[in-house]
């Protein structure tokens, strides 16, 4: 056994994430502009924000895991493996085969279930609770969207702001790089990257990150070019302010709204891409995309097993819809161009 196991990394990352969220909340509360934007967002999209919060909480509950505490009689559970809080709610719920939602007997064969009526969304072909799997998918989806954005946005900022601010050879290089990447078909490049790097959550996220940073890089480069010529940046340069300081004090804060907008709009695209990757057999384990892909053939059974595809589809759709509506409003609230100019 090696010293650090994946579940420990996950626990640590969860703590870091919570700290980051707390930090972000503090920044938002301190700055009047952000505070007003947040208040306006809350007024407009209360429901969607609540939905997102629910997904977030589920993902968090599934990210904190520890070993032990598993009842001995539990079926299909490794007693020595780490289990997350979500896992612990569903210990020992596995059946032998399909169960329809709230059924007392098996869907095919009419044998009694071990937990009659205890599967509100039914079970899949090997008897796993569908609700459980749908809940587990939340963490995977947020991980895909979040981790990938954490890779793509800093990458894009580094190249975009650098190219826009310093210009010259570096700009030529970045422009060539983003032109090249932009002219390769996104999905194919993605697939090629995953095939080259091997499959797995991290490599999928890295591949998604590499293919999705180009758009924002172009945007931040153009925006930096504009900002660089503005009087307050020029004044700072004339006053002898150091270049890193200009970038961090004057350029980046003026890109902050774009970062937030891009993050939210990117998120839904990433999660949807993962569904397509799952269907190609190179997705992330435990994602809704895999559930949908696995359940596709069940629609041709007689009678139809519909509940697992419905659960995964609904979970995916609800998350994306909430993100999209919030994203739209964030853009309206933060983007000065779309703001109404009523007197």
């Amino acid at each position: 056994m090696s010293g650090i196991e994946p579940y420990m990394v996950s626990n640590g990352a969860t703590l870091l994430l919570l700290a980051g969220v707390g930090f972000a909340v503090r920044i938002v509360r301190r700055n009047r502009l952000w505070r007003e934007a947040a208040a306006s967002l809350w007024r407009r999209r209360r429901l969607a924000l609540c939905v997102l919060a629910v997904y977030f909480v589920i993902a968090l509950l599934d990210s904190v895991a520890w070993k032990g505490g598993v009842p001995e009689h539990a079926v299909g559970v490794l007693p020595n493996a780490p289990h997350s809080i979500v896992d612990r709610f569903f210990l020992d719920t596995t059946e032998a085969s399909y169960s329809a939602p709230f059924a007392a007997v098996e869907f095919y064969g009419d044998r009694p279930l071990r937990h009659p009526g205890a599967h509100p969304l039914g079970t899949d072909i090997i008897g796993r609770d569908v609700l459980y799997m749908a809940l587990k998918g939340a963490r995977v989806a947020l991980l895909i969207g979040g981790l990938t954005s954490l890779i793509a946005i800093p990458l894009a900022l580094m190249f975009g702001v650098g190219a826009g601010y310093f210009g010259g050879r570096f700009d030529d290089f970045v422009f060539f790089l983003i032109s090249t990447l932009a002219s390769m078909p996104g999905l194919l490049l993605l697939i090629a990257l995953i095939m080259a790097m091997g499959r797995g959550t991290v490599s999928v996220c890295v591949a998604l990150g590499v293919t999705s940073w180009v758009g924002f890089c172009r945007l931040s480069r153009a925006e930096t070019l504009k900002l660089r010529e503005l009087d307050f940046v020029r004044a700072a340069r004339v006053l002898g302010v150091s270049e890193p300081r200009i970038i961090f004090r004057h350029i980046l804060p003026n890109l902050a709204h774009l970062i937030v907008i891009t993050f939210v709009l990117m998120f839904s695209g990433l999660v949807l891409s993962e569904a397509v990757l799952s269907w190609l057999g190179i997705g992330v384990d435990g994602s809704w995309g895999q559930m949908i892909d696995g359940a596709r053939d069940e629609l041709s059974r007689e009678p139809i097993v519909w509940w697992n595809i419905a659960a995964a589809g609904t979970a995916l759709f609800t998350l994306i819809l909430a993100v999209n509506t919030v994203g739209d409003s964030i853009r309206d609230v933060l983007d000065p161009r779309t703001q109404g100019d009523a007197p």
Partner: peptide
């Protein structure tokens, strides 16, 4: 439109 965009092509 947002509703239609939120459904995965797979679905």
């Amino acid at each position: 439109c947002v509703l239609a965009m939120s459904v995965s092509t797979l679905l």
